[in-house]
Design a protein around this nucleic acid. Structure first.
Lengths: 217, 217, 217, 217
DNA sequence: GATGAATGAGGATTCATTCAT
DNA sequence: CATGAATGAATCCTCATTCAT
């Protein structure tokens, strides 16, 4: 077997175990047992237990980072809302595909080690900043109401994290609806209220979302 | 020294250490060193390392639970929004007072042990349910828009958790403003849009919040 | 409460616990719990855990020693067989009365500590010697057949120990019959054969024992 | 070094130490020091301290059990007395070869742990039963006098145990004579008296044994 | 490269004994 | 005398990592 292939195989097994038991309760013994390799072989591919965990973590963080793209306001881009929707969709797609990695990022990598803690914190910090910058832009453009964009960005990030945690735990697959629900909640939370209702008949409830989401066009 | 006093003293020290280093990296040696007691003395007050952690965790969960009260609709109660505000205020007050416990609940108690994991999950689950029930009630009363209240409840819970995490990390104290910010974001996210803007001049932004928050009166 | 009385009370409780769990598995905590005294009080009456055990052991060894009397051949003494019978009877009486002490002497005091091991070994050694001397005397008097009296003495001692162990474990009380049985077995094992059968009709079996036991008169 | 070889080596050292100091006073440190292995290596071969002790105990009990064979009455078998002699010989051979194991079975395994206590008790119980069954058979065949075979079996077992204990402590090697002595004592203790003396001249003492022992032919 | 036996530092827990009140 | 909180040495066991084959 090719070196990279074997390494990937070990990573695959480790991922499942770390996700299930967390870093501390996972032994090297667990990993080599599942990966069907010898103790020494493990150390041929990874410097130590910590490294294999970091590789997995980095992989997840990098992938997630790529899935969350900056909102662009160019004329040839989709509407900001559509860009948000696409971001959210990609994140949830990752979650559904990589439940184990999600679990690791979300739960098992905190309170672990100064350095790794810091790395995760920084990752979330970056996302929060991306969100905050988008909000600031929205305010400038008259789409987002005046608010403490830092706190609101946290709220949004936290909301997504919590829903993501739920999803990774449950076997639900109706991600599109959930994306819509989060988007709806978040946008209403930040939108300037004038953009939400216009000449709307009392009973009609479902249609409004669509209007909001496309109001920026 | 009185028994309870001594026990509390040990707990106090353990709390700081667990918060800083997490359960696994904290030794009994660390705790007894800080608490200035002998090895055996520790085991006089706690069956084992796990127990002292559980005591701290339970203490936090119980305290937090008490701070989050069910929204009541009786005539002699404050408005629902005021009740929400009070809940949030009490939670943030706890966070500021008990940064270490907050840290433990938020970060260090997950991926630890099936049983403790389950206990924390259940705690959050209960809060999510409280939120969801409030939302359901709001929908019935025509205050909250039609939505997937489960997902939205998750979003709200997650938002609060994230902000709380931020707060426990930083030395900020403007909690009242933050409470207001979260409330504002959350309420707008769920309120029926008609309740948000009524005959409002375009420029006026700040006044609208107040109206919303007291709309239920 | 009087000092000696209290000491005796603690000893009584310790005896039961040592018998049931042995020295090593018995904690000072067990003893003070049962005796309803404080930790420090224990050390007021006994230097340490070992001492209380030794007191019990010595008590048992001394009592037993007194119950096993040297066989005397004076004209005004009962027959040697009756003296043996009386010895055995007294030993079994002790066993039935002091099951716990018996248990301690028999089982829980070996492999414990060089010194205590030696003391017990010496005790048994002394009894074996008493038996051996009696046998030697019997040989001289023409009652006992030629044999390796040391080995035979061991056999006899061991036989009694084993039966005693059985008795202390079970709730049987027919000690007299057992005394007779042991005596019968042992005497036949050592008696000169001529003394066992004399002009005896083939079928008669039960009577012979009596003749043997009183043959020395 | 081969796995089994290494394991055996550790067992060999542990055997000596357990025999000398007993279970409780023996540390794992003692064992690994003697066996010249690292702490962890010990736990590679044995789950814990208790297990290595049990392995040794079981080994002894199994070996001993195999050395004590049921007395068979078939025409092509040696005489019952010869079978007894062979059994005794094999037991004493074991004792001389495996003094340490003998010591463990005899002394260091009692009052240790409910389960192990029970196992040893059961072992002796089984031997006692074997003896008792042989006695019952002897009674049926008219070789053994009427008696409480249970008690007598205990006497015989105890006698052997005591002699065995003596042997394992001392450096004697004249086992054949001792076997003969025990046999002689035991057989006389149980034999029907008519079988012991027949037309025997007064002075002749040594010959009688032979006759008895071969009477069953 | 692959193996897995060996290592030993590290950490949790117990319990006999002391001593201030 | 009596108490029981405090002590800390002793001991078992785990597990990440190394290294000779």
């Amino acid at each position: 077997m090719d070196r990279e292939e074997r390494r990937a195989q070990v990573l695959r097994h480790a991922k499942r175990i770390f996700a299930r038991k967390g870093y501390h309760r996972t032994n090297v013994a667990d990993i080599i047992l599942r990966a069907r390799i010898a103790r020494g072989t493990f150390y041929l591919y990874f410097r130590n237990k910590r490294e294999i965990f970091e590789v997995l973590l980095d992989q997840a963080l990098r992938d997630l980072s790529e899935r969350i793209r900056r909102i662009r306001m160019a004329a040839d881009e989709p509407s900001p809302v559509d860009q948000l929707r696409a971001n959210l969709g990609r994140v949830l797609e990752f979650v559904m595909m990589e439940r184990e990695l999600t679990d690791i990022v979300l739960n098992h990598a905190v309170g672990f080690d100064r350095e790794i803690d810091a790395r995760i914190l920084e990752f979330y910090e970056q996302i929060a900043q991306k969100i905050q910058r988008s909000l600031d832009l929205g305010v400038q453009m008259g789409l987002v109401r005046q608010c403490d964009t830092h706190t609101v960005a946290c709220c949004i990030l936290g909301g997504v994290k919590e829903v993501v945690g739920q999803l990774s735990r449950r076997r639900r697959h109706d991600t599109d609806a959930i994306v819509e629900e989060i988007l709806n909640f978040g946008l209403r939370g930040v939108a300037r209220p004038e953009l939400l209702v216009e000449h709307q008949p009392a009973g009609e409830v479902t249609g409004e979302g669509e209007r909001l989401f496309h109001a920026a066009h």
